[in-house]
Design a protein around this nucleic acid. Structure first.
Lengths: 193, 193
DNA sequence: AATAAATAAGACCAATCGGTCTAATTTGAA
DNA sequence: TTCAAATTAGACCGATTGGTCTTATTTATT
């Protein structure tokens, strides 16, 4: 049983490339070159390019779920304040990326989700994990009367998720954070108790 | 000066294909076949695939600007009611498309906007046209005390635009309208006077 | 009717696509 | 130490990519 290459390392490199350049715009060879592996090894690990992309999405989704979980678990702020610091962090992160990349799962959903059932399903799974974490924090905020009771916690989570993702398409063509900051201010004004 | 093919007809066919399948996932040949034109004629009309896609985006954007303008001009509803009927119509339209396609300019922004400056610029132009029309209606709603004065009309337009577009990525992986309806209800609750 | 310009038409091009195949190498277990 | 299995390695494959080129046709102008 020979071994040498690290699958997770290849997935991490794939994550960087697919997030920045998309799916159909990236050839297998680009991934092979950047990861420094021959084609035979790649197809030994992954059934196809599609299989590879799905595993990249899965790995990123799960890593991010864990990260979000510890972010909110370790937060010493109140529920709504930790939500605010979460979205502030997300906006800052996109600024550091020059507003070009966005979220790989959002990108994949838009580009690939409609033409690939498996990808759609896997992307949806990750979204649901994230939304449940957000909903838990929102629910705490509702109990502390920080957040409106007009809607269910999960509905507010979906609402914030949609709004934030919507700013991505503006961001990618304007290349600045104005719209993200405006979205942030308005959203937290609207959902407050 | 010979002629035969109709450029605008080709652009309309290109619109259908690019909206449904994306940019990098579509080959020139697919467009040629569907439009029934040979390659030589295509490259007689368009400099490149990129040039073609940009002209498709421009044509759709301008057509949609005109459509929105007459939609709101001819509306006999109050400002906020005509906004509601506008978004209801948009959600219904996506349902009729089986939630697979979304908005071509949103799709292009996400997939191509980050790697193609010209496309980003052209997409942004169209967004701005639409946002200005929305802002005008919102402003009327504010004057009639139907819509909140907490934010500027253009900010609210950006906010609605972002939220609505954000539902697209969920829509494409869940393939149902639940999240769009929830977004609709929450948004109009939040922006009311 | 003759002419020149624009367009139509599709064969053709190198480059790249995702993927396969065979052979060499490395490995853990016997 | 032998051996079978897994992995490494990259040459190779047909299909398709965006784009070019030459030739035939159509058109408006004269």
């Amino acid at each position: 049983m020979g071994y040498k290459h690290n699958i997770e390392e290849i997935l991490d490199i794939g994550y960087d490339i697919l997030r920045k350049k998309g799916y159909h715009n990236v050839g297998i060879n680009q991934i092979l070159n950047q990861a420094g592996i021959p084609k035979g090894s790649f197809y030994n690990f992954f059934e196809s390019k599609e299989d590879f992309a799905i595993k990249v999405v899965k790995r990123y989704g799960e890593t991010n779920t864990e990260w979000m979980q510890t972010f909110f678990d370790n937060s010493e702020l109140s529920p709504i304040e930790s939500l605010q610091s979460f979205y502030k962090f997300m906006i800052d992160t996109n600024e550091n990326d020059d507003f070009l990349s966005g979220c790989i799962i959002n990108n994949m959903s838009i580009e690939v989700g409609r033409i690939n059932e498996t990808m759609a399903h896997k992307a949806n799974e990750q979204f649901i994990s994230w939304l449940n974490i957000l909903a838990r924090v929102i629910n705490e905020g509702q109990e502390l009367k920080e957040i409106t009771h007009k809607f269910k916690a999960l509905e507010i989570a979906e609402y914030l998720h949609a709004g934030f993702y919507g700013t991505f398409s503006r961001m990618k063509v304007t290349r600045n954070r104005t719209y993200m900051d405006t979205w942030y201010n308005m959203s937290f004004e609207f959902i407050k108790y």
